[in-house]
Amino acid sequence: MPTTVPTPQPVPPLLQIEDLHVEFDTPDGTVEAVAGVGFSVGAQETVAVVGESGSGKTVTALAVLQLLDGGRISRGRVLWDGTDLTGLDRRALRRIRGNEIAMIFQDPMTSLDPLYTVGHQIVEGLRLHRRIDKRAARGRASSCWSRSHARPAPQARRYPHQLSGGQRQRVMIAIALACSPRLLIADEPTTALDVTIEAQILELLRELQAEYRSAMLLVTHDMGVVAETADRVVVFYAGQVVEQGPTAEVLRDPQHPYTAALLAAVPSGETDRAEPLAAIPGVVPPLRAMPSGCRFHTRCARAWDDCARDEPPLLPLPGGRSARCLLHRSGTALQAAAVKGA
Protein backbone atom coordinates (compact mmCIF):
# COMPACT_ATOMS: atom_id res chain seq x y z
CA MET A 1 0.00 0.00 0.00
CA PRO A 2 1.55 3.25 -1.08
CA THR A 3 1.99 5.73 1.67
CA THR A 4 1.72 9.37 0.92
CA VAL A 5 4.63 11.20 2.32
CA PRO A 6 3.31 14.54 3.54
CA THR A 7 5.04 17.33 1.75
CA PRO A 8 6.65 19.59 4.34
CA GLN A 9 4.48 22.67 4.72
CA PRO A 10 6.35 25.93 5.19
CA VAL A 11 5.89 26.85 8.85
CA PRO A 12 3.63 29.90 8.97
CA PRO A 13 5.08 32.76 10.96
CA LEU A 14 3.79 33.32 14.47
CA LEU A 15 2.66 36.82 13.70
CA GLN A 16 1.95 38.08 10.25
CA ILE A 17 0.84 41.61 9.54
CA GLU A 18 -0.64 42.12 6.09
CA ASP A 19 -1.30 45.46 4.41
CA LEU A 20 -2.21 47.13 7.71
CA HIS A 21 -3.80 50.56 7.53
CA VAL A 22 -4.61 52.52 10.67
CA GLU A 23 -6.64 55.71 10.67
CA PHE A 24 -7.25 58.31 13.34
CA ASP A 25 -10.09 60.77 13.34
CA THR A 26 -8.91 64.24 14.25
CA PRO A 27 -10.86 67.49 14.40
CA ASP A 28 -9.33 68.35 11.02
CA GLY A 29 -10.30 65.10 9.36
CA THR A 30 -9.06 61.57 9.11
CA VAL A 31 -5.34 60.86 8.99
CA GLU A 32 -3.66 57.61 8.13
CA ALA A 33 -0.87 56.88 10.60
CA VAL A 34 -0.03 53.48 9.20
CA ALA A 35 -0.37 53.02 5.45
CA GLY A 36 -0.07 49.45 4.28
CA VAL A 37 2.44 47.90 6.63
CA GLY A 38 3.31 44.24 6.28
CA PHE A 39 5.90 42.08 8.01
CA SER A 40 6.08 38.93 10.04
CA VAL A 41 7.64 37.57 13.20
CA GLY A 42 8.61 33.90 13.36
CA ALA A 43 8.61 31.71 16.44
CA GLN A 44 11.45 32.65 18.82
CA GLU A 45 12.61 35.32 16.44
CA THR A 46 13.48 38.86 17.46
CA VAL A 47 12.31 41.50 15.05
CA ALA A 48 13.14 45.15 15.57
CA VAL A 49 10.95 47.90 14.20
CA VAL A 50 12.92 51.12 13.82
CA GLY A 51 11.99 54.56 12.64
CA GLU A 52 11.73 58.16 13.69
CA SER A 53 9.02 59.46 16.02
CA GLY A 54 5.71 59.52 14.19
CA SER A 55 6.67 56.84 11.70
CA GLY A 56 3.89 54.57 12.91
CA LYS A 57 5.92 51.98 14.79
CA THR A 58 4.08 52.25 18.09
CA VAL A 59 0.70 52.49 16.38
CA THR A 60 1.50 49.28 14.54
CA ALA A 61 2.48 47.55 17.79
CA LEU A 62 -0.73 48.69 19.47
CA ALA A 63 -2.78 47.69 16.44
CA VAL A 64 -1.44 44.14 16.72
CA LEU A 65 -3.01 43.90 20.18
CA GLN A 66 -6.14 45.84 19.16
CA LEU A 67 -5.21 48.45 21.74
CA LEU A 68 -5.57 51.51 19.54
CA ASP A 69 -7.00 54.35 21.54
CA GLY A 70 -9.08 56.46 19.20
CA GLY A 71 -7.70 54.87 16.05
CA ARG A 72 -9.06 52.06 13.91
CA ILE A 73 -7.72 49.50 11.52
CA SER A 74 -9.24 50.50 8.19
CA ARG A 75 -7.69 47.76 6.13
CA GLY A 76 -5.44 44.74 6.45
CA ARG A 77 -5.07 41.74 8.71
CA VAL A 78 -3.09 40.79 11.76
CA LEU A 79 -2.65 37.04 11.69
CA TRP A 80 -1.71 35.40 14.95
CA ASP A 81 -1.03 31.72 14.43
CA GLY A 82 -3.31 31.90 11.41
CA THR A 83 -6.18 33.69 13.22
CA ASP A 84 -7.03 37.24 12.22
CA LEU A 85 -6.94 39.29 15.41
CA THR A 86 -8.78 42.19 13.80
CA GLY A 87 -11.97 40.18 13.68
CA LEU A 88 -11.90 38.80 17.23
CA ASP A 89 -14.28 39.85 19.99
CA ARG A 90 -13.03 41.03 23.37
CA ARG A 91 -13.31 37.67 25.04
CA ALA A 92 -11.23 35.90 22.46
CA LEU A 93 -8.74 38.76 22.43
CA ARG A 94 -8.34 38.58 26.21
CA ARG A 95 -7.28 34.96 25.95
CA ILE A 96 -4.48 35.99 23.63
CA ARG A 97 -3.45 39.34 25.01
CA GLY A 98 -1.38 39.24 28.15
CA ASN A 99 -1.25 35.48 27.79
CA GLU A 100 0.10 34.47 24.39
CA ILE A 101 1.16 37.99 23.46
CA ALA A 102 2.46 40.26 26.20
CA MET A 103 3.49 43.86 25.93
CA ILE A 104 6.04 46.02 27.70
CA PHE A 105 5.56 49.75 27.43
CA GLN A 106 7.84 52.66 27.05
CA ASP A 107 7.44 54.38 30.39
CA PRO A 108 7.95 52.15 33.42
CA MET A 109 7.32 55.09 35.75
CA THR A 110 3.62 55.23 34.94
CA SER A 111 2.91 51.75 33.64
CA LEU A 112 2.24 50.24 37.06
CA ASP A 113 -0.80 50.92 39.21
CA PRO A 114 0.47 53.12 42.07
CA LEU A 115 -2.05 51.74 44.57
CA TYR A 116 -0.99 48.09 44.52
CA THR A 117 2.23 46.34 45.44
CA VAL A 118 4.27 45.15 42.51
CA GLY A 119 3.94 41.56 43.72
CA HIS A 120 0.16 41.90 43.62
CA GLN A 121 0.33 43.19 40.07
CA ILE A 122 2.38 40.25 38.86
CA VAL A 123 0.01 37.81 40.57
CA GLU A 124 -3.01 39.62 39.15
CA GLY A 125 -1.88 39.14 35.56
CA LEU A 126 -1.20 35.48 36.18
CA ARG A 127 -4.53 34.76 37.82
CA LEU A 128 -6.43 36.36 34.97
CA HIS A 129 -5.12 33.75 32.57
CA ARG A 130 -4.28 30.69 34.60
CA ARG A 131 -6.74 28.85 36.75
CA ILE A 132 -4.46 28.73 39.72
CA ASP A 133 -4.97 29.67 43.33
CA LYS A 134 -3.36 32.61 45.01
CA ARG A 135 -0.53 30.60 46.51
CA ALA A 136 0.51 28.94 43.29
CA ALA A 137 0.30 32.31 41.57
CA ARG A 138 2.48 33.86 44.24
CA GLY A 139 5.05 31.11 43.84
CA ARG A 140 5.14 31.52 40.10
CA ALA A 141 5.23 35.28 40.37
CA SER A 142 8.14 35.18 42.75
CA SER A 143 10.05 32.89 40.41
CA CYS A 144 9.35 35.24 37.51
CA TRP A 145 10.34 38.07 39.74
CA SER A 146 13.59 36.59 40.87
CA ARG A 147 14.48 35.78 37.29
CA SER A 148 13.77 39.29 36.15
CA HIS A 149 15.63 40.79 39.04
CA ALA A 150 19.14 40.35 40.33
CA ARG A 151 17.98 40.15 43.94
CA PRO A 152 15.13 37.87 45.11
CA ALA A 153 11.77 38.71 46.39
CA PRO A 154 11.47 41.11 49.34
CA GLN A 155 10.81 43.80 46.73
CA ALA A 156 7.49 42.21 45.85
CA ARG A 157 5.85 43.89 48.81
CA ARG A 158 6.95 47.28 47.60
CA TYR A 159 4.82 49.84 45.83
CA PRO A 160 5.85 51.15 42.41
CA HIS A 161 6.81 54.58 43.75
CA GLN A 162 9.39 52.93 45.99
CA LEU A 163 11.26 51.48 43.02
CA SER A 164 13.61 53.02 40.49
CA GLY A 165 12.82 53.18 36.79
CA GLY A 166 14.99 50.18 36.01
CA GLN A 167 13.41 48.12 38.78
CA ARG A 168 9.95 49.05 37.59
CA GLN A 169 10.81 47.97 34.08
CA ARG A 170 11.94 44.65 35.56
CA VAL A 171 8.54 44.38 37.21
CA MET A 172 6.89 45.10 33.86
CA ILE A 173 8.99 42.37 32.31
CA ALA A 174 8.04 39.97 35.10
CA ILE A 175 4.34 40.78 34.54
CA ALA A 176 4.75 40.29 30.81
CA LEU A 177 6.59 37.00 31.12
CA ALA A 178 4.55 35.53 33.98
CA CYS A 179 2.29 33.70 31.54
CA SER A 180 5.18 32.58 29.30
CA PRO A 181 3.93 34.43 26.24
CA ARG A 182 4.90 33.23 22.78
CA LEU A 183 5.41 36.81 21.66
CA LEU A 184 6.65 39.75 23.65
CA ILE A 185 6.02 43.18 22.20
CA ALA A 186 8.40 45.70 23.74
CA ASP A 187 7.66 49.30 22.83
CA GLU A 188 10.85 51.27 23.42
CA PRO A 189 11.46 49.40 26.69
CA THR A 190 14.65 51.27 27.47
CA THR A 191 13.97 54.78 26.18
CA ALA A 192 13.09 56.13 29.62
CA LEU A 193 16.09 54.54 31.30
CA ASP A 194 19.68 55.63 31.53
CA VAL A 195 22.33 53.93 29.48
CA THR A 196 23.76 51.49 32.03
CA ILE A 197 20.30 50.32 33.04
CA GLU A 198 19.38 50.09 29.37
CA ALA A 199 22.16 47.57 28.79
CA GLN A 200 21.04 45.50 31.78
CA ILE A 201 17.41 45.49 30.69
CA LEU A 202 18.29 44.50 27.13
CA GLU A 203 20.51 41.73 28.43
CA LEU A 204 17.70 40.57 30.70
CA LEU A 205 15.18 40.60 27.85
CA ARG A 206 17.53 38.53 25.72
CA GLU A 207 18.12 35.99 28.46
CA LEU A 208 14.49 35.63 29.40
CA GLN A 209 13.43 35.45 25.79
CA ALA A 210 15.76 32.50 25.29
CA GLU A 211 14.59 30.89 28.51
CA TYR A 212 10.89 31.25 27.77
CA ARG A 213 11.36 30.60 24.04
CA SER A 214 9.38 33.71 23.18
CA ALA A 215 9.52 35.70 20.02
CA MET A 216 10.04 39.42 20.45
CA LEU A 217 8.85 42.43 18.52
CA LEU A 218 11.04 45.28 19.65
CA VAL A 219 10.01 48.81 18.79
CA THR A 220 12.87 51.25 19.02
CA HIS A 221 14.52 54.23 17.43
CA ASP A 222 17.95 53.21 18.61
CA MET A 223 20.13 51.55 15.99
CA GLY A 224 22.50 50.37 18.69
CA VAL A 225 19.69 48.43 20.36
CA VAL A 226 18.74 46.95 17.00
CA ALA A 227 22.25 45.78 16.32
CA GLU A 228 22.54 44.14 19.73
CA THR A 229 19.23 42.34 19.89
CA ALA A 230 17.41 41.78 16.64
CA ASP A 231 17.54 38.90 14.16
CA ARG A 232 15.69 40.93 11.59
CA VAL A 233 14.97 44.60 11.29
CA VAL A 234 11.99 46.42 9.77
CA VAL A 235 12.59 50.09 8.99
CA PHE A 236 9.54 52.38 9.15
CA TYR A 237 9.19 55.72 7.50
CA ALA A 238 6.01 57.83 7.46
CA GLY A 239 3.68 54.92 8.12
CA GLN A 240 5.28 52.52 5.68
CA VAL A 241 7.90 49.81 5.75
CA VAL A 242 10.77 51.12 3.66
CA GLU A 243 13.20 48.29 4.17
CA GLN A 244 13.45 44.98 5.90
CA GLY A 245 15.89 42.12 6.15
CA PRO A 246 18.31 40.32 8.45
CA THR A 247 19.84 42.79 10.87
CA ALA A 248 23.49 42.23 10.06
CA GLU A 249 22.98 42.66 6.33
CA VAL A 250 20.71 45.66 6.62
CA LEU A 251 23.12 47.43 8.91
CA ARG A 252 26.13 46.54 6.79
CA ASP A 253 24.60 47.23 3.42
CA PRO A 254 21.35 49.23 3.59
CA GLN A 255 19.25 49.05 0.42
CA HIS A 256 17.12 52.12 1.06
CA PRO A 257 18.56 55.64 1.21
CA TYR A 258 16.55 56.29 4.39
CA THR A 259 18.14 53.36 6.21
CA ALA A 260 21.52 54.48 4.97
CA ALA A 261 20.87 58.00 6.23
CA LEU A 262 19.68 56.70 9.62
CA LEU A 263 22.84 54.64 9.99
CA ALA A 264 24.98 57.56 8.96
CA ALA A 265 23.38 59.60 11.73
CA VAL A 266 24.57 57.19 14.42
CA PRO A 267 27.75 58.62 15.92
CA SER A 268 30.56 56.12 16.33
CA GLY A 269 33.86 56.12 18.15
CA GLU A 270 35.50 57.58 15.10
CA THR A 271 33.07 60.45 14.76
CA ASP A 272 35.00 63.71 14.77
CA ARG A 273 33.80 65.63 17.78
CA ALA A 274 34.47 68.94 16.13
CA GLU A 275 32.10 68.13 13.27
CA PRO A 276 28.37 68.61 13.72
CA LEU A 277 26.53 65.28 13.99
CA ALA A 278 25.18 63.95 10.74
CA ALA A 279 21.42 64.43 10.40
CA ILE A 280 18.78 63.76 7.80
CA PRO A 281 17.74 67.13 6.36
CA GLY A 282 14.14 68.20 6.86
CA VAL A 283 11.49 66.56 9.03
CA VAL A 284 9.08 63.67 8.66
CA PRO A 285 6.22 65.03 6.54
CA PRO A 286 2.98 65.61 8.43
CA LEU A 287 0.41 62.85 7.96
CA ARG A 288 -2.07 65.06 6.17
CA ALA A 289 0.50 66.43 3.73
CA MET A 290 2.31 63.37 2.42
CA PRO A 291 4.37 64.11 -0.66
CA SER A 292 3.36 62.34 -3.86
CA GLY A 293 5.44 59.44 -5.13
CA CYS A 294 8.01 58.18 -2.67
CA ARG A 295 7.28 59.51 0.80
CA PHE A 296 10.95 60.06 1.45
CA HIS A 297 11.90 61.85 -1.76
CA THR A 298 11.72 65.35 -0.27
CA ARG A 299 14.55 64.46 2.11
CA CYS A 300 16.38 61.95 -0.03
CA ALA A 301 19.86 62.78 -1.33
CA ARG A 302 19.42 60.34 -4.20
CA ALA A 303 15.98 61.33 -5.39
CA TRP A 304 15.37 62.10 -9.04
CA ASP A 305 12.32 63.17 -11.08
CA ASP A 306 10.59 59.76 -10.98
CA CYS A 307 10.60 59.73 -7.18
CA ALA A 308 8.07 62.57 -6.94
CA ARG A 309 5.79 60.79 -9.39
CA ASP A 310 5.91 57.03 -8.86
CA GLU A 311 5.12 55.49 -5.50
CA PRO A 312 7.63 52.68 -5.13
CA PRO A 313 6.33 49.28 -4.00
CA LEU A 314 8.20 47.21 -1.42
CA LEU A 315 10.51 45.45 -3.86
CA PRO A 316 11.83 42.00 -2.92
CA LEU A 317 15.59 41.68 -2.98
CA PRO A 318 17.86 38.67 -2.67
CA GLY A 319 18.60 37.25 0.77
CA GLY A 320 15.07 37.63 2.16
CA ARG A 321 15.32 41.40 2.03
CA SER A 322 13.12 44.05 0.55
CA ALA A 323 13.24 47.81 0.08
CA ARG A 324 10.75 50.43 -1.01
CA CYS A 325 12.91 52.40 -3.39
CA LEU A 326 12.85 53.07 -7.13
CA LEU A 327 16.59 52.44 -7.23
CA HIS A 328 15.72 48.76 -7.18
CA ARG A 329 13.12 48.91 -9.92
CA SER A 330 14.16 46.67 -12.74
CA GLY A 331 15.35 48.73 -15.62
CA THR A 332 16.64 51.45 -13.37
CA ALA A 333 20.11 52.20 -14.55
CA LEU A 334 21.38 52.87 -11.07
CA GLN A 335 22.65 49.90 -9.19
CA ALA A 336 21.54 48.89 -5.74
CA ALA A 337 25.10 49.05 -4.56
CA ALA A 338 25.01 52.75 -5.19
CA VAL A 339 22.48 53.26 -2.40
CA LYS A 340 25.13 53.13 0.21
CA GLY A 341 26.79 56.18 -1.22
CA ALA A 342 23.68 58.21 -0.41
Binding site: R90, R94, T110, E124, G125
Partner: peptide, 17 residues
Protein backbone atom coordinates in the same frame (compact mmCIF):
# COMPACT_ATOMS: atom_id res chain seq x y z
CA UNK B 1 -8.42 55.60 32.12
CA UNK B 2 -5.89 57.21 29.80
CA UNK B 3 -2.93 56.47 32.02
CA UNK B 4 -0.35 53.90 31.00
CA UNK B 5 -0.98 51.53 33.91
CA UNK B 6 -4.52 50.96 32.70
CA UNK B 7 -3.00 50.06 29.34
CA UNK B 8 -0.83 47.55 31.19
CA UNK B 9 -3.78 45.68 32.67
CA UNK B 10 -6.40 46.28 30.00
CA UNK B 11 -5.13 43.84 27.34
CA UNK B 12 -5.62 40.72 29.40
CA UNK B 13 -8.27 41.69 31.91
CA UNK B 14 -12.04 41.81 31.66
CA UNK B 15 -13.25 45.39 31.43
CA UNK B 16 -14.99 45.08 34.81
CA UNK B 17 -11.72 44.19 36.56
Amino acid sequence: LRSPFIRTVRPGAPERT
